[in-house]
């Protein structure tokens, strides 16, 4: 058989299994939501010329399937907890995207490339939106057009000082200059805001790295090499003292020897060479631990995705008891 035909057979079998799963037992891959009506009385605003009014809407919150099953059993006519088409479609989309990314383990394929292309577009727009609502609106627009922002988006916007307003106009000019990067003729103008970004980053990084990394880590390394641990009677407890002291000595020796390895102004020979070699051993242990830790983290993520597929989508497992009520009702009858 051709590879494409193999794929069709595999996909047909998977689709048939999913179809059987969807129509047997509890079904699968459904999301339920609970309605919460909200009504707010808005006072009249003389400044805006709006009368007193009542604004209401319904907030829909996701609930476990067992809540829906329980509500349906109690009253089949109830409408408080409902099946959500939008969220169910989202769940199936998430399942498709998860499988599409996993399919790369076999080889590059259209499903994977589709998911890859989608994530590029979505994440670019996502971060642009976050930047717009979290920074541009409250800081830039809030300073440049405070009345508009206050009347439509952020009523709690604080008054801006003159310095702040001037600075934000400067930021707007720098931002527009940055966008000149897209033009072929005026691209050099974008170097000015870029210089500002580079300068501020450099100034910030010096302070933050020296303060929080260099100084704090150095201070934390100054540990007593003989750490006396006392018991309840006030006498020195031998075993804890030995362990704590050994631990402190190992940390101090480790930091100093690793730093010796990083110090290239002196040739790594003699005492310096031996110290640097110990530093390499420490670094190898650190990299090994980092590797183990990373693999564990990735495997935990993998487990979470597999749990999503088998629990949220296929409803084959139920570790957090989301559907336990119906299971019981099926047993009880």
């Amino acid at each position: 058989m051709k590879p494409s035909r193999n794929w069709i057979v595999v996909l047909a079998v998977v689709a048939a299994l999913i179809g059987i799963r969807a129509f047997s037992g509890q079904g699968m891959g459904r999301v339920f939501v609970k309605a919460e009506p909200i009504t707010v009385q808005v006072a009249a605003d003389a400044r805006m010329g709006t009368p007193a009014q009542s604004v209401s809407w319904t907030r829909w919150s996701a609930v476990p399937a067992k809540a829906y099953f329980a509500a349906e059993r109690a009253n089949p006519q109830q409408t408080e907890i409902q099946f959500s088409w939008a969220r169910t479609m989202g769940l199936w989309l998430a399942a498709f995207l998860t499988l599409a990314i996993f399919s790369f383990m076999y080889r590059d394929n259209p499903a994977y490339r589709f998911a890859e292309a989608a994530i590029v577009g979505v994440s670019a727009a996502y971060w642009m939106t976050i930047g717009f609502w979290d920074t541009i609106v409250p800081k830039l627009l809030g300073s440049v057009w405070p009345n508009f922002v206050k009347a439509n988006i952020l009523p709690s916007l604080a008054e801006q000082s003159t310095v702040q307003v001037v600075a934000m106009w400067a930021a707007l000019v720098l931002g527009i200059m940055l966008l000149m990067r897209l033009s072929s003729k005026g691209a050099w103008i974008s170097m000015w805001p870029l210089a500002f970004i580079i300068g501020v980053t450099a100034g910030l990084k010096i302070v933050s790295h020296v303060e929080s990394d260099l100084l704090q880590q150095s201070v934390a390394t100054f540990k007593p090499l003989l750490a006396l641990e006392r018991g309840a009677d006030g006498a020195v407890a031998m075993a804890p003292t030995v362990w704590l002291s050994l631990r402190n000595v190992l940390i101090v020796v480790g930091v100093l020897s690793c730093l010796t390895y990083f110090f290239f102004s002196v040739e790594h020979k003699g005492l310096v060479g031996r110290s640097a070699r110990v530093g390499v051993w420490y670094l190898m242990i650190t990299f090994g631990a980092a590797f183990g830790f990373t693999v564990m983290g990735r495997v935990a993520l993998l487990a979470a995705r597999v749990e999503f597929l088998f629990d949220d989508w296929l409803w084959l497992i139920d570790p957090s008891g989301k559907r336990v009520v119906e299971t019981l009702s099926m047993v009880v009858g």
Binding site: I136, G175, F196
Partner: peptide, 21 residues
């Protein structure tokens, strides 16, 4: 103030990224 200007210019840089994309 310089930090605020930096944040705004960095946020506008997302627009640049989007335009480039």
């Amino acid at each position: 103030t310089f930090g605020d200007v930096f944040n705004v210019v960095a946020a506008i840089a997302f627009v640049l990224g989007a335009g480039s994309l």
